[in-house]
Design a protein around this nucleic acid. Structure first.
Lengths: 209, 209
DNA sequence: TGGTTTTCTGAACAGTGTGTACAATAACTA
DNA sequence: TAGTTATTGTACACACTGTTCAGAAAACCA
């Protein structure tokens, strides 16, 4: 069903070159310290040409990201509440693909998550994770009466933020664990909390007081 | 012991004006869309004067932040592991001051945490929270043999990220809960995890498998 | 292959913001 | 009040942006 797209070879080439140049420069100097001049110089493309394809630096970044994320197939299998209560904790873990993707592009993510990165980028990633977690984790596991102890939006944004926090830590420390280990720790800390992680035996209250 | 600082009144006035102008403009248009021209225009100060005080926009932002955070006294009382195991969960909660501070400057934080914000800002806040959580929460509660199920750096960055994620959600939804409620939910979700929050009864494994 | 279409290119331009210099002026301190 | 210090306006060189345009180059297609 896919339409046979005949994109002029020059266009493909130009966009590819610009994309590669952008990525390389981000790693080299950080997103904010790059001018369009720099990008076209590195790509060996005329600056005029840049404006034939993109409105500004941000548009190039965002379209490049979309291409990048097309590599990352969403393989997240939603958990089901019944299944989980029946079988207990089986290591159907939380999005190990995400950690693998970050590891594969570590230099890029390290730059973009740091102070030399872009606020737009972080917001996009956060939105992506939040939606993914809401659909693939919170919603399937929510009590059927919707009566969670904490609002589901709260949980999703909590976990999305936590995942980015952990990814930053991981990148800053030069990936001391494998993507699989990271996904496991993330999963267990999310689901059982820091009391479990710290080996503290406390009975949680029935409701928030 | 405080040295009697005699700062020229003109200097105080100029810096105050620039600080206020910056904050107002951030709320109005977002950090990235402001030029130094704009700031000095709004502040009714000569652009030349700006450079007598600050190197660039970022320096003004960061020194302004330091002044802002001086309002926020770190009142976090570290929990103790023994105490906690003895007394159980008493609502000595996680940093409600932070949520109050955010609520008091909601417009500012909403702008700075959004895509129109600044990556430098987010990184600073994250570092602040991470250090606060490491010292006031993770370290005091860590098993004395240091044998947590998850590394303490992981836990601290997890929680710091989660707190920012939750704050963003809170700001985007126009503060639907009080700072105290937010702090409680944050605390319980952190400590007991999403299984508790979603009312799922599962026995956590003894170790990560 | 050759003719046609499309893209790329370099040069030029106005506009905006940056960072610095300097001499005149205004405001503060003691 | 006299002396010090901060602020001001003007001016300048520089860098980057975004757009226009006509010619060169490349790709397409019959």
């Amino acid at each position: 069903m896919a339409v046979e797209e005949k994109v002029d070879r020059r266009i493909q080439r130009t966009r590819q070159l610009l994309r590669d140049a952008l990525m390389a420069l981000i790693i080299e100097r950080g997103y904010e310290n790059i001018s369009i001049q720099d990008i076209t110089d590195k790509a060996n493309v005329s600056r005029t040409t840049f404006y034939l394809h993109y409105r500004d630096k941000e548009e190039l970044l965002l379209t490049s990201l979309i291409e990048m994320y097309n590599e990352l197939v969403a393989r997240l299998q939603p958990l089901s509440r019944e299944e989980l209560e029946r079988e207990g904790i089986t290591p159907r873990l939380l999005a190990p693909d995400d950690f693998e993707h970050v590891a594969a592009h570590a230099d890029f993510y390290r730059a973009m998550f740091s102070s030399k990165g872009s606020a737009v980028f972080v917001e996009r990633v956060l939105q992506y994770l939040e939606a993914q977690l809401q659909e693939g984790f919170v919603k399937p596991l929510e009590p059927s009466d919707g009566n969670s102890r904490v609002p589901s939006g709260f949980i999703a944004s909590f976990m999305a933020g936590a995942e980015i926090g952990v990814m930053r830590w991981w990148l800053e420390n030069d990936l001391p664990y494998s993507p699989q280990e990271m996904a496991k720790m993330m999963f267990y800390l999310c689901t059982f909390g820091s009391m479990w992680a710290l080996r503290l035996n406390l009975t949680p209250p029935d409701e928030i007081t």
